[in-house]
Write a protein that binds this DNA or RNA. Structure first.
Lengths: 123, 123
DNA sequence: CGACAATACATGCACATGCAAAGGATGCAA
DNA sequence: TTGCATCCTTTGCATGTGCATGTATTGTCG
């Protein structure tokens, strides 16, 4: 049976509300580590990748950002020394973004914060 | 029992993904009516209010926008003639945003689109 | 009554994002 | 080799948002 319009609207409203609540909380919490939500997402993806490195194209799939936005996020992370870019050997058009030592440390520091916020807001 | 970190992360990821999917679909669909998601939300709220009018402050509570962003959304709607602003008589600091005839029509036109997108993406 | 805080909006500014276009390096196939 | 597609960076522009601030009005306290 199809849902009524109001039921759909309420469900959507609830989803938006939860998303907004968690996002704002995350943003605030991660600010203490000088990270944004997008930045953390990228770090998390890299951290879980083999060799702590990943092609941009692959990142583009998991992170919800346009190509240009992703390029800029990685650029910011590079400026902070958390990520380094290097050529891809098998396909030299590609670029590997790899987590640096500092990046790993920053991520490890921020992870408990991230986890706590999720636990508090997704209960 | 508390959820594991990975379970939390997956749940969050799923939420973000769904939110992004629906939002993008809505944005695309509503574009045919020259409306953004925020604009539609405001119209919907006004349409369901008594007298089709509402104080900014009250709107601010239901719509997930900062006060300044809300002020601008209403400004855009006013530019399009879909909403009109008028002084509040009992408290002259306050402002009523009220749906115009054109606003009601636009909303009625866009509502089926909105409903369809939700039905297709929240199933 | 008069000074001062609080409220309701509007606006200036910074910034993140998406889109689109241009460019450089490389891979691939005819 | 030539030509075209792919992967990525960079840039310019428009837009939407939040934060901080400004302005006008209201409320409060002495």
């Amino acid at each position: 049976m199809a849902k009524s319009e109001s039921a759909l609207a309420e469900q959507w409203q609830a989803l938006v509300e939860q998303h907004a609540r968690v996002t704002i909380a995350l943003e605030r919490a991660l600010a203490e580590h000088d990270l944004g939500v997008s930045e953390f997402e990228v770090l998390a993806e890299l951290a879980s990748a083999p060799e702590s490195a990943c092609r941009m194209q692959q990142l583009s799939g998991t992170v919800h950002l346009s190509q240009s936005a992703l390029s800029r996020v990685v650029g910011r992370l590079e400026d902070q020394g958390l990520v380094s870019r290097s050529m891809c050997e098998d396909d030299r058009r590609g670029i590997y973004a790899s987590l640096t030592e500092a990046g790993r440390e920053r991520y490890d520091l921020a992870r408990p914060t991230h986890r706590t916020v999720l636990a508090d807001n997704l209960g």
